[in-house]
Simulated scan of single mutants.
Amino acid sequence: MISSCHINIKSITKHKDELQARFSKYDIISVNETNLKSERQFTLLGYNTYRNDRVGKPGGRVLLAVKQHIKCREVFNKTVGKNEAIAVEIETKTLKSRLISSVYIPPTAKLNLNLFHELYDINNNCIIMGDLNATLYNKGSQQANARGKQLQELLAEGFIDCIEDDNSTFEKNDYEVKLDWILASQPLLSFISNVETHPTIGAINGHKPLTFDIPTGAESKSLSPRI
């Protein structure tokens, strides 16, 4: 069983200590809006980190942190039509690896369907989590916005689907909405369990961290004979 966490954090360096204190038990951590600059080093204790940083512009950026004992490799690091993404493949005890991706879509951008096709074409056993700034009626929101309608179009294609969960993931004052999503191909989607939202990190962020479990059967790295 692998436990995963997705967070929109606005500034990962500002909230690093709280992130580690609350979520270091999770095997994979997806972070949107890290605000990391490409020249800045960043580490999380016990994790290998993979980043897609913006160049020359503030905001955005995505990161995946994978526990060091899990075998994985980066397979995708690209921004497609302002949709920022990073993806790794997790080796498993079976013949088929799993692709895990973190995606951030700014509120001024469109959801780029080609990005999701690219990720699926790399590995059709995939989980995509992120802040898509997409709202869907009766799935944590009162109405569908423009990106929500694009998300509906994506889901209608049938190669990927979302968790059937109507909990909001963003809360500010009296406004609640679902902006953060867990998408997956079958049969992985049916194996995802224990989906939960958590209190926000930082007082003004508004995004609730999402956590879930998936029985991927990930391979562990062999330890050095000296250990």
Score class of each variant (00 low, 15 high):
108 T>F: 09
96 K>C: 01
20 Q>A: 10
39 E>T: 12
87 A>Q: 11
28 I>G: 01
141 S>N: 07
75 V>M: 13
212 F>K: 03
149 K>A: 05
214 I>Q: 10
178 K>L: 08
209 P>H: 06
205 N>M: 01
86 I>T: 05
114 N>T: 09
88 V>A: 09
105 I>D: 02
212 F>D: 03
18 E>M: 07
162 C>T: 13
120 Y>Q: 02
90 I>R: 04
48 N>L: 05
180 D>W: 08
33 E>H: 05
215 P>T: 09
21 A>Q: 15
135 T>F: 07
173 N>Y: 01
198 H>N: 04
113 L>A: 04
56 G>L: 14
4 S>G: 13
98 R>E: 03
171 E>H: 05
129 M>I: 12
199 P>R: 03
64 L>N: 04
199 P>H: 04
132 L>E: 12
199 P>C: 01
71 K>M: 11
94 T>V: 08
79 T>C: 15
44 L>C: 08
216 T>K: 01
9 I>E: 10
26 Y>H: 14
12 I>P: 08
210 L>E: 09
37 K>Q: 15
80 V>T: 14
115 L>P: 08
112 N>D: 14
25 K>Y: 01
16 K>S: 07
149 K>M: 13
144 A>P: 07
29 I>C: 04
218 A>I: 09
148 G>Q: 07
208 K>H: 08
129 M>R: 04
156 A>N: 14
27 D>A: 11
136 L>H: 03
71 K>F: 03
5 C>S: 10
2 I>C: 14
218 A>F: 15
37 K>I: 06
202 G>E: 12
64 L>E: 05
152 Q>H: 12
22 R>C: 06
168 S>M: 07
45 L>T: 10
171 E>F: 00
2 I>G: 03
62 V>D: 06
66 V>D: 07
112 N>H: 06
16 K>G: 02
12 I>L: 10
192 I>E: 10
140 G>S: 04
99 L>N: 06
